[in-house]
Design a protein around this nucleic acid. Structure first.
Length: 590
RNA sequence: GGCUUCGUAGCUCAGCUGAAUAGAGCGUCUCACUACGGAUGAGAAGGUCUUAGGUUUGAAUCCUAACGAGGUCACCA
């Protein structure tokens, strides 16, 4: 049981004994005591005044006296207004330290039998991965780690959107202007090559529209009649008709993209357990729609199109099958959701998707519920805000995006520059250095994207993102490397149990570390990796401050040194674990 | 316009299941190496928590409205 939980349980018990009133355990508010007051944890007693009909100070006094008498973990208390400040015994933290400094699984929860699928990344195959996708990818990967750590069985899924008009646009541009170019012939990474033709398509499209407008057509009409668009639509028709040449080209170009994605995913250090392809699933929602029609959950209009009426739920009418019987985006997603469930029977299905699809996801879940599909209730949309540049949104159509590969390369080279300027390259082989730059560059990038609450939109400030000071990944990596260095020097010192008086800062560190498992559970429950970022940053900061005030290897006594080495070991383990959970490596040296 | 998310220091963000003087980082200005890693630490300045009402012993936090910003309301995906 966590310390805070233990305080709550004890307080509720004692309140019951004093007042003969049942206070639920969760009604006890326990906060960290503010630094300007004496004590470790504070119970707020205002909430108990109504039922006890006593002043908050009185309740606090009685509660404090009883707690100190009840349990040896409480050594003393003081009351200020309605706040009961409790001091926790050093022995409690000493026991905690002894029990955990060699425990490499500290923070991990036992299996809870829950199975969760996390769908993330889910790229289109007509363009490379850009900065906005990185937020998605890091979120999904990190969340998977956090859920695993807290006892869930996790399936990482990637739904590749490999069909549709967008890829046909790249194909048309390639047919027209490509002259048989391939990644090998051009030396361009496959996803970038295909992306270039997507941008080219849009250039050509604009030109053709311009010509038509000059010929006197309305802009709106011209945008529908541009020959290149007609060609792309024709290509999509051929694809759906299984035209051999079209399928062949489609396979080839998608293949280039997958090779490119593969390189990027590896570079980013993320992976997947299961890939779904929309070309395989896009027809799959149809039978469900037809079944829904039989059950009168859906209805049919005169043109044979199939709809669901969600107006009673405050939403709109939604089309599920076109008049010609073909499916739309929503139908596909229904089919895919059911397919996934049939594959894994998971308890929860998390979709990491941008907040522009909030409405879509709400409707998807509701429709599945109305269809009484077993997968419906487990659906959770982890909605995240867009990443914006200081001067506005990125649009891949216009090519003004921050490309993910470029970004990683940029961050890696900044890591190199910083390391060289600080003269910290000695003792590394070339290969180790390259590895290190990658670790630091990615550490900075991932932390920058994960430190903000997912649901909020965030601004990507290029200057700030390359900073390696303060609330950043490298700051924490640095702290980890620093501890590692100290521990290396103390390698031959035997760590045995010691009992000493601890300083306020030592106690503070232990108190913070004790909260780590609880924090992970919270991050998992809220699907929020940023909590981990904030936590390990605060821990690293506290440790650095501790280090400035305490000598370890030159401590006054041998016991003190051993005690501080044990604390350092534990801090190091927690920092490394925290970093790993958000997908960041913790270097031994840097 | 309907629905929805959001508005906290010059900037980027915590705090939002109500509770003590609203916290970090960056930036600005001081200070600290006879030290285990200065990619550090200590300190200062900087806030009518968008505004106006309401609920409450108590509101940045809950409710209502206004103002401002984003998203969405396709037989696109």
């Amino acid at each position: 049981m966590s310390l805070i939980q233990e305080i709550k349980v004890n307080a509720a018990k004692v309140l019951n004994e004093i007042y003969q009133i049942e206070f639920p355990i969760e009604s006890v508010q326990v906060n960290d005591t503010k630094p300007e007051f004496e004590g470790d944890y504070t119970i707020v007693t205002f909430p108990f005044t109504k039922q006890t009909k006593q002043k908050p100070e009185e309740v606090a006094e009685k509660l404090g006296t009883a707690l100190v008498a009840l349990n040896t973990i409480f050594t003393s208390y003081n009351v200020i207004k309605g706040f009961l400040n409790l001091e926790i015994s050093n022995a409690y933290f000493n026991d905690f330290l002894v029990a955990n400094y060699t425990n490499t699984t500290f923070g991990q929860s036992a299996s809870n039998g829950q199975k969760v699928m996390i769908e993330y990344s889910s790229p289109n195959t007509n363009k490379p991965i850009h900065f906005g996708h990185l937020r998605n990818i890091f979120l999904g990967y990190s969340l998977a780690n956090i859920l695993k750590e807290t006892g869930h069985e996790v399936i990482k899924a990637n739904l590749i959107n490999d069909r549709g008009i967008h890829i046909c646009k790249s194909m048309v541009a390639w047919i027209r202007e490509g002259n048989g170019a391939t990644p090998t012939s051009t030396g361009i990474k496959g996803d970038h090559l295909v992306g270039d033709y997507y941008v080219l398509y849009n250039d050509l499209f604009k030109k053709e529209v311009g010509v038509l407008v000059e010929q006197g057509l309305e802009k709106e009409v011209a945008e529908k009649q541009a020959p290149i668009l007609i060609e792309a639509q024709e290509l999509l028709r051929k694809w759906e008709a299984n035209d051999e040449d079209t399928i062949q080209l489609w396979k080839t170009m998608n293949g280039w993209v997958y090779e490119g994605f593969d390189v990027t995913f590896k570079k980013l250090g993320v992976d997947f357990d299961k890939f779904y392809y929309e070309s395989n699933t896009y027809l799959s929602g149809k039978e469900v729609a037809l079944k829904g029609l039989k059950n009168n959950v859906l209805y049919q209009k005169e043109d044979h199109s199939v709809w669901i009426d969600l107006e009673a739920d405050g939403l709109d009418q939604k089309l599920l099958l076109r008049g010609d019987g073909t499916s739309v985006y929503m139908t596909q997603d229904i089919g895919t959701a059911i397919l996934k469930y049939n594959d894994y029977q998971m308890d929860k299905s998390v979709y990491v998707i941008g907040d522009e699809q909030n409405y879509h996801m709400q409707v998807l879940k509701l429709i599945l519920q109305k269809l009484q599909e077993p997968c419906a209730d487990g659906i959770y949309h982890l909605s995240y805000g867009m990443v914006e540049l200081p001067n506005g949104k990125m649009k891949s159509r216009e090519g003004n995006v921050v490309d993910a590969d470029d970004m990683v390369a940029e961050m890696t080279s900044i890591a190199q520059k910083n390391t060289e300027e600080l003269g910290k390259v000695e003792g590394f082989t070339n290969e180790e250095l390259l590895n290190l730059y990658n670790t630091l560059g990615l550490g900075a990038l991932k932390f920058y994207l994960l430190r903000v609450d997912p649901k909020k939109k965030m601004i990507f400030n290029p200057e700030e993102s390359i900073d390696f000071h303060g609330f950043t990944g490298p700051f924490i990596q640095y702290t980890h490397a620093r501890i590692s260095s100290i521990l290396r020097k103390a390698n031959d010192i035997e760590l045995k149990s010691v009992a000493i008086e601890m300083t306020a800062q030592e106690k503070g560190l232990l108190k913070q570390i004790e909260q780590f498992p609880t924090l992970l559970l919270q991050a998992a429950a809220e699907y929020n990796p940023s909590l981990v970022c904030i936590y390990i940053f605060n821990l690293a900061k506290e440790y650095n401050s501790f280090l400035a005030n305490h000598s370890i290897l030159k401590a006054d006594t041998n016991e003190q040194m051993i005690f501080r080495l044990q604390i350092s070991t534990l801090v190091k383990n927690v920092l490394a674990k925290g970093l790993n959970l958000i997908g960041i490596n913790a270097p031994e040296r840097m």
